[in-house]
Design a protein around this nucleic acid. Structure first.
Length: 568
RNA sequence: GCGUCCGUAGCUCAACUGGAUAGAGCGUUGGCCUCCGAAGCCAAAGGUUGUGGGUUCGACCCCCGCCGGACGCACCA
């Protein structure tokens, strides 16, 4: 289904073709007084031609055919052309929308996309710092799929690093089987910390840890077996977090999957002259790029070891060979900007043509406004956050809806609590840093997920009250009349305009903002217009509005990875 | 030192990428449940968008200079 914006742009394109090359753009208006949609194309043309914008606007309107869509367009301000949708068209459009499975969203030209996100480290707990990549990545996957793209969601786990020397040393000397069974990651962290602390005091422990690492890297059977258990135990615990968050992956190919490709890759880069020796290390220089001229990408250390960038390059090579995607998206924190600039630069030198897109996000800061460090153990853990969220939601459910069974209350508390946490993150612009705050992440009032869920619940409650058969979706032929009916219908039509914008610049928050506005408009309608007590055909029209609102809310929330409960 | 990102109401954040009188939530103040779920609705107060210039019909947004902050700049990931 074509959006109103693209319909208006199409008509405008024909109307302005006389004036030369220009792509007219239509946007929603800032204020209903200016109608529903506007274009600034007359002002842009006027600038090109050094002419009077209002005169140009008049000429455009003379050539513009939007009859049957809007009232006569008006010229306002410095030369805006304002459009007001006419009621007959709105009614027809609303009816079509009620029957559209895609709820007004048109599918995009399908692409194959590898989406790299989350990527927690094995043997370390997931903390609040991991939540952004996980949630933003999952939302982008959901939106991309809804628009018709093929997405391969790949969790690039940090399962191969120097920390394993210490973990293995600890494992061999102090592991507690019971603790390992109950809270595996916690136990692995304990072992790591103990080994770390001791090796700072005792040279022999430090050396022993290094030996374990060398043995692991050399393929020692015992150490490989221990490492594999660490991976499995950690992954098992991560899976619980992902299940709770309702986040899913198609692949979880960790860094270790690429070990065998590192040496051949470096050899290839050297033999093709892309990489060279410098100060004993192997690196790739970007001499033709002034910004990167003094920032080579290191791919092999003086001691022969490989680096982060080497693994990432091998990963790109693998993904291209295996899937030949059109694009690869990386949802990774903004501090890694330089790293990815370098890696992408090397990839291009290697002849990679797939679009490589770095999708950075702002950091979560501690109370001191400093970055929450992954290394310092005193971060708020993800498990803690999600448990607290459920508890707070549970307390509110208890107070609002005491009659429900315990099972229902718990189920609702999960949907509400987790939804609130996800929405708190997704409703924010991607690049802004934010200070972690329990109250903010766990707020259940105002611009939050429960606000949207509540609108949905109100609607479901209405439908529980009508007899089956007394209303059927799609049978209505009433007319939108009340102002709050009309503004709700108009808002519903914007869903199709909003969803594709999310992928334009990878901004889930514009979908979140839209859903908030939709819920807000619905609440306004709900206060102003009785539904069940209205006379026919008004009742049917209002039921249709409710039904469509519920479907858009449910779909929109599901694109954000948030569930819509029947009751709360 | 160089580079990247950022600075908006008391607090936390938006602003459809250059559009019209900069909007929400929290908090504060006042009003609305004998009516479909009050996790809601309505209203009030709150701003020189860090700062000084520039570009233009028009700037929170683009350019330059300051001030303040976070992060990154060769062998961690």
């Amino acid at each position: 289904m074509q959006t109103l914006i693209s319909l208006l742009e199409e008509r405008l394109r024909t109307a302005v073709s006389y004036a030369g090359e220009i792509e007219p753009r239509v946007t929603g208006t800032a204020d209903p007084r200016f109608g529903d949609y506007q274009t600034n194309v007359a002002m842009l043309l006027a600038k090109q031609q050094r002419a009077n914008p209002r005169q140009i606007a008049t000429q455009i309107i003379e050539r513009l055919d939007v009859s049957g869509i809007c009232e006569t367009p008006e010229i306002a301000g410095a030369g805006f052309i304002n459009f007001r949708i006419n009621t007959a068209f709105l009614n027809r459009r609303f009816n079509e929308l009620c029957h559209d499975e895609m709820l007004g969203v048109s599918r995009a030209k399908p692409k194959k996309i590898v989406l790299d996100f989350s990527g927690p480290n094995i043997a370390k707990p997931m903390h609040v710092g991991h939540i952004r990549s996980t949630i933003i990545g999952d939302t982008l996957a959901r939106v991309a799929r809804f628009l018709g793209h093929e997405v391969i969601a790949d969790n690039h786990l940090g399962d191969w690093g120097t920390q394993f020397g210490k973990v293995i040393y600890g494992w061999k000397n102090w592991r507690d089987e019971a603790a390992l069974a109950a809270r595996p990651v916690e136990e692995l962290v304990r072992l790591y910390k103990k080994a770390n602390a001791l090796s700072e005091q005792d040279e022999t422990v430090l050396r022993a840890c290094r030996d374990e690492l060398v043995k692991l890297q050399g393929g020692d059977a015992e150490n490989i077996a221990i490492w594999r258990q660490c991976v499995e135990l950690s992954w098992h615990e991560f899976e619980q977090m992902y299940a709770l968050l309702d986040v899913h992956f198609d692949k979880h190919l960790g860094e270790s999957s690429y070990n065998d490709r590192l040496a051949p890759l470096v050899a290839k880069l050297e033999s093709t002259g892309i990489a060279e020796q410098s100060e004993g290390a192997t690196c790739v220089f970007f001499r033709d790029d002034s910004a990167l001229a003094d920032k080579p990408c290191l791919i092999r250390k003086t001691d022969g070891g490989f680096l982060y960038a080497t693994t990432d390059l091998a990963t790109i090579e693998y993904r291209i060979e295996r899937w030949n995607p059109d694009e690869i998206w990386y949802v990774v924190g903004a501090p890694q900007a330089l790293h990815f600039e370098q890696v992408f630069g090397v990839a291009r030198k290697m002849g990679v043509t797939a679009q490589l897109r770095f999708i950075p996000f702002g950091s979560i800061l501690g109370e001191d406004r400093k970055l929450m460090k992954t290394r310092s153990g005193d971060n708020v853990q993800l498990r803690e956050l999600l448990e607290e969220a459920q508890q707070r939601a549970r307390a509110v459910v208890e107070q609002k809806n005491a009659a429900l069974s315990d099972e229902e209350k718990n189920e609702i508390a999960t949907v509400i609590g987790i939804g609130a946490v996800k929405y708190a993150d997704l409703s924010q612009a991607r690049m802004t840093d934010y200070v972690f705050s329990w109250d903010k992440m766990l707020s259940l009032q105002g611009n939050t997920a429960p606000y949207l869920q509540n609108a949905f619940v109100r609607i479901r409650s209405i439908f529980r009250k009508i007899e089956t058969g007394s209303w059927e979706a799609g049978k209505e032929d009433g007319a939108l009349a009340e102002p709050s009916e009309i503004s709700l219908a108009k808002k519903l039509m914007q869903f199709g305009e909003t969803v594709p914008l999310v992928l334009d610049d990878f901004r889930p928050n514009i979908l979140a903002n839209y859903l908030y506005e939709l819920a807000n408009t619905f609440h306004g309608f709900y206060e102003a217009c009785p539904v069940l007590k209205a006379d026919e055909p008004m009742r049917s029209t209002r039921l249709a509005l409710c039904d469509l609102t519920a479907r858009v809310l449910e779909r929109g929330l599901s694109l954000l990875g948030i569930r819509a409960p029947e009751k709360m």
